[in-house]
Nucleic acid binder design. Structure first.
Lengths: 238, 238
DNA sequence: CCCGGATTGCAACGGAGCGCAACAGCCCGG
DNA sequence: CCGGGCTGTTGCGCTCCGTTGCAATCCGGG
């Protein structure tokens, strides 16, 4: 077993700091929290952190500047928290070498999963050493995880609801695989699908409309009768 | 005939181990069960397993660590069992390269279907590590697995239903080989064909029409009286 | 060559699965 | 408390595909 990873959480929101401290510690990690960039700068030399969770939207010094400073000091992995709808240029913080990003409001479990994934990459253990894709292209469409948005083949933004985005993301992560309603229900809602549950069908239907995919004769999200759904497209990451 | 697949089931729940052993054995598979990762590690070198069914939520060593170890040892396909809402493990599990995923509580028939699908994929790709063909051509027709669609010799898309597509794919993967109704039924529906079962005949009939192949005098999908069906064409992969 | 059972082709039918419009409940910010 | 956006539920129509029935074809025996 490896030593417990030490995480530095930088967020001005006390609730989030507490939540993350409790949650991550329960998962066997050590957590130190800072309320802003100034405090984080002071804490930095005092500990050997394995990873920094950084909220970009903070009073005082912009999180982005702190991230840049951090990068100049060390190779420590950074996971960025962003609020939805923040300015473009802020999220370009990825260019700066952040290792992953999670949109607020976030699911702690998801953040944990991403933290683990980043740590594993950093340790060189994991099979997936590529950084998270900045854009994901399929059948002319472009998904930008950093901004949680979808661009149509003309490059225009198509606004997705949270649920639609998540569904699409799940599909795009496993193209050409049949995903059962059970799997989708579990992944997207964390609950079990009842036998007459049509929630997934309706969600797919709504997503198809945004993707201009005719449900009666779909080309992108195909139906597998009695099985589930498949994204029928080649997905390209970059 | 291929040898009976040997499955290693790793789950701490005795009921599930027993259920799966009985069920999968009735389906003609060999099953070995382990109650935890430690036991599984010991069993691993003693058998040649074709697939591992792994519960991630186990006391002792986390299933995830075992999966990682397994991956470092071999390319054996892994099907993961997870409890509902264990988002973390699921995401990481998929990143690790698990081949499929079934949510608990699961339907044994569904698990069986997934196991078969994974085994088929693993066998199809075989030891030759060639990437799956992007297009498959036969007698002027083109099958595009990535998009799950069929193009006629003029290059126009012919819309197939899910069942038609699956049938065609099976035929194309085994050209010039007689496929019995039993085999087709097993592969396509995961069940056995009754003695008066005409489902396959009708499915072939429907597919022939889409392929413009006259059933009374077929040139593409030939009938072998008392035997089954053959795709009579040279198949070209690229 | 003719007959009859076996086998297959396929049209027609119907149950089950699915698409999706419409409705309703929920959440959240004002 | 209201209003708007989001998502689950419901209902109806359509599609898919298994079943059934009958005609066509095959084939061995007389």
């Amino acid at each position: 077993m490896e030593p417990a990873p030490h995480i530095l959480v930088v967020d001005d929101d006390r609730e989030i700091r507490d939540l993350l401290s409790r949650f991550l510690e329960k998962q066997g990690m050590r957590v130190t929290a800072a309320r802003d960039a100034r405090e984080a700068r002071k804490l930095w030399p005092l500990g050997r952190y394995h990873l920094v969770v950084l909220d970009l939207m903070m009073p005082g010094e912009p999180g982005l500047d702190f991230a840049r400073w951090l990068r100049s000091q060390s190779e420590v992995p950074i996971v960025i928290l962003t609020a939805m709808g923040e300015e473009t240029d802020r999220i370009v913080g990825l260019e700066l070498g952040a290792d992953d990003y999670v949109a607020k409001p976030f699911n702690p479990r998801e953040l944990l999963a991403r933290i683990r994934a980043v740590l594993r990459r950093a340790n060189g253990e994991g099979p997936s050493k590529e950084p998270p894709a900045k854009v994901i292209r399929f059948a002319g469409w472009t998904l930008e995880p950093a901004r949680r948005r979808l661009l149509n083949p003309d490059g225009a933004e198509v606004s997705l609801t949270g649920g639609e985005y998540e569904l699409l993301q799940v599909l795009v992560e496993r193209p050409n695989r049949v995903l059962t309603r059970d799997m989708l229900m579990d992944i997207l809602r964390g609950r079990q699908a009842g036998p007459f549950d049509r929630a997934i069908d309706v969600a797919v239907s709504r997503l198809r409309r945004k993707l201009e995919d005719d449900g009666r004769n779909p080309t992108l999200i195909k139906t597998v009768r009695g099985g589930g759904y498949v994204l029928a497209a080649t997905v390209e990451r970059g």
